[in-house]
């Protein structure tokens, strides 16, 4: 299935801003995070189709997945 992945902040370093990628059916956000070797400690926000989601949520063909780092004060 095809997933449009957009990365933000430090997750872009050495990766990409936005790409359409193929993943097997039943993939979760977490499996994509693992595949992209994104630091779990830094992962703060997962959005699927613009809606806040959990890392273990299952994606469907055509979904967009946005991964953002933590937001922890300033």
């Amino acid at each position: 299935m095809q997933i449009t992945i957009s990365l933000h902040g430090v997750f872009r370093i050495g990766r990409f801003k936005e790409e359409v990628c193929d993943y097997p059916l039943g993939s979760t956000a977490q499996s994509i995070v693992d595949d992209l070797k994104i630091s779990v400690t830094l992962l703060g926000i997962v959005l699927i189709n613009g809606v806040h989601a959990a890392a273990e949520d299952i994606l469907h063909d055509g979904d967009s997945l946005m991964l953002l780092p933590l937001l922890e004060g300033g």
Partner: peptide, 12 residues
């Protein structure tokens, strides 16, 4: 391996 300080709030 960090997020780069409070400034990174912009990206989020």
């Amino acid at each position: 391996g960090g997020g780069g300080g409070t400034w990174a709030a912009y990206d989020v």
